[in-house]
């Protein structure tokens, strides 16, 4: 068993709208172990990016508050002040962002942007930093690291930029990297390369990765465990195998059913009607998914739904999964993605 790097307990992050706070991340608990990839999955607005930014504490402090504990290395990150947190960010926790063009400073060379990380967390000399930067660029598979060192972000392709972004995140050998939709802005062939690169780096450094994505095919390819989030809550969690073979929560089943499949002869793509409720207006007492599956009787839902352990390490929120069926006439597609691994 690998040792736990990050232990999140009852994390609630609320945003202020007007004078009230509304939870965008609601009572989330999970652990990330060494050498493990935990995927956080959900559609836009379900709170997965808010979760990532809460761990890094990159939210605007005036408008956000976080409660609960984020245990890293024996300390609760939520109790650290900015100066203390700056020693953790970049050094112990690295972050990869979605859109590598806007996430890089347009006026700074790639080399300088990677070196900046080393500036604050290492005591390397000027030459030492340059050497390390070139080494990092080589590591992430940039073909001409010496040249790229002096280039600006706009001079690189999307895939190369994301590689540079990864080298910023791993510059100080962090114990944990949070990748927020790292492949969403890239085309499919590049996506696969970036995922391979992340796995490859992990195999060498044993770092833990939190992979935030809405793309289940990405999850199937690389993740060890899945956390499915809906409206700020964890609705289902378990190993990749467990979730793909035996998805239980209506939301997870709907998500899996929405994957376009080449083998399955379906005329239409499954659509989950409706949208994630807004954090200011949602009903926080009942099952949060109930409005999107109106054909399921209200009786099937629990009040204040809890996570139920259905198999070892496999948790599902609310009792409604027991009575759930798809309304559309088409049958539920089977998922054999994990079997092919």
């Amino acid at each position: 068993m690998n040792k736990a790097i990050l232990k999140i307990e009852n994390l609630t992050t609320s945003f202020r709208i007007g004078s009230n706070y509304h939870a965008a991340v609601d009572d989330v608990s999970f652990t990330v172990n060494e050498n493990e990839i935990v995927a956080v999955v959900g559609e836009s607005g379900c709170g997965k990016s808010a979760l990532a930014l809460s761990i890094m504490q990159l939210h605007n402090k005036q408008r956000t508050k976080s409660e609960g504990t984020i245990n890293y290395n024996g300390q609760n990150l939520l109790t650290l002040n900015d100066t203390q947190m700056n020693k953790v960010r970049g050094k112990e926790l690295g972050m990869i962002f979605q859109e590598p063009l806007t996430a890089l400073n347009p006026l700074m060379t790639i080399g300088k942007q990677i070196e900046e990380n080393l500036d604050y967390h290492t005591s390397l000399s000027k030459d030492g930093k340059k050497k390390r930067t070139i080494e990092l660029l080589t590591q992430v598979g940039i073909p001409y690291p010496e040249r790229t060192y002096k280039q600006f972000p706009h001079e690189l392709s999307g895939g190369m930029r994301q590689r540079a972004m990864i080298s910023i995140a791993i510059a100080c050998n962090p114990a944990l990297v949070i990748a927020d939709e790292p492949t969403t802005a890239l085309d499919v062939t590049i996506q696969a390369q970036i995922l391979d690169l992340l796995k490859d780096i992990q195999s060498r450094t044993k770092m833990g990765i939190i992979l935030i994505t809405h793309d289940l095919s990405v999850v199937a390819e690389v993740a060890d465990r899945i956390i499915v989030m809906y409206a700020g809550q964890v609705v289902e969690t378990g190993s990749v195998k467990e979730i793909f073979n035996n998805p239980l929560h209506p939301y997870t089943r709907s998500l899996l059913n929405s994957i376009p499949s080449a083998t399955h002869e379906k005329n239409r793509l499954h659509v989950i009607e409706g949208i994630v409720p807004s954090i200011a207006k949602m009903d926080r007492v009942g099952c949060r998914f109930q409005d999107r599956i109106p054909w399921i009787p209200k009786m099937a839902h629990e009040q204040r739904p809890q996570l139920h352990e259905v198999a070892e390490g496999h948790f599902v929120r609310c009792t409604c999964y027991q009575d759930f069926y798809f309304q559309a006439e088409g049958d539920e597609s089977t998922h054999d993605i994990t079997q092919s691994r």
Binding site: M95, F97, A103, L104, P106, E116, N117
Partner: peptide, 26 residues
């Protein structure tokens, strides 16, 4: 509020340097 500023913060850059090296130059 640009993404690259968030990236700078994620590197552990202190707030004063986030301004001088990133926000103000742009």
């Amino acid at each position: 509020i640009k993404d690259y500023v968030r990236t700078a913060r994620s590197k552990g850059v202190p707030e004063s340097n986030v301004y001088s090296r990133h926000i103000l130059r742009n």
